[in-house]
């Protein structure tokens, strides 16, 4: 479990050092995108439209924060991760199109994303689900917000962060997945569990 501190933009060389189980902290710019923001970004890219910010080298965070508007400014109240598997249907194209090398979420991602991360040299990192006030502590301010028509959970928040973490590397550029390993180990235990419960799997 090595620990790394990165400042954005984070390069492919940076992320290739990482192995599953390592811990990273990010300073710089992180932007949020859930289901609808992923969909919109990819649709716009297909039509050749420009993104509101250049995503290259930034980290995308699967998060729909609780926010508070203070005058013209926005304040992040709570900002933990959302379940990442919902984004499996977009993420391979997303990291390819926008050259995002770090994905932050929770619960891991599926085989399609693991494959893309190996090919494109990107990593998936997990923030502790629900740890929203610890996350908010690492967020210094809202730099920009776009696509507010999607609602505050789904829109694109551009966040200035400092030592944002701990983020546990869940998928690395070698195609290893911590979550897959845990799931495989769980499967291997089914025999024992069946014996204990007097059932067969």
């Amino acid at each position: 479990m090595a620990e790394y501190h990165f400042t954005t933009p984070i390069s492919k060389e940076d992320v290739q050092k990482l192995k599953i189980g390592d811990v990273i902290y990010i300073s710089g710019i992180v932007f949020t995108a859930r289901d609808e923001a992923h969909e919109r970004a990819l649709e716009m890219a297909e039509k050749g439209e420009k993104m509101p910010i250049d995503f290259e080298g930034l980290a995308v965070y699967h998060c729909g924060p609780v926010v508070r508007q203070v005058g013209d400014d926005w304040e992040i109240v709570a900002a933990g991760p959302t379940t990442s598997t919902r984004l499996d249907m977009f993420e391979d194209e997303f990291i390819k199109e926008f050259k995002v090398n770090v994905v932050i979420g929770k619960g891991g991602m599926g085989a399609r994303t693991v494959k893309a991360m190996k090919e494109l040299k990107a990593v998936y990192t997990a923030f502790v689900g629900g740890a929203a006030v610890v996350a908010a502590k690492g967020i210094k301010r809202v730099k920009e917000v776009h696509w507010l028509d999607l609602g505050t959970p789904e829109c694109l928040w551009v966040l200035e962060v400092e030592k944002f973490g701990p983020l546990i590397v869940g998928i690395d550029t070698n195609g290893d997945s911590l979550f897959q390993n845990v799931a495989d180990e769980a499967k291997a235990k089914l025999g024992k569990i069946g014996e204990f419960l007097d059932i067969t799997f």
């Binding site: 929770k106 619960g107 502790v128 979550f179 180990e185 235990k189």
Partner: peptide, 11 residues
Amino acid sequence: NMTGFGSMGLG
């Protein structure tokens, strides 16, 4: 708990 998924599925 025998499955070993653990907190956040991290083992």
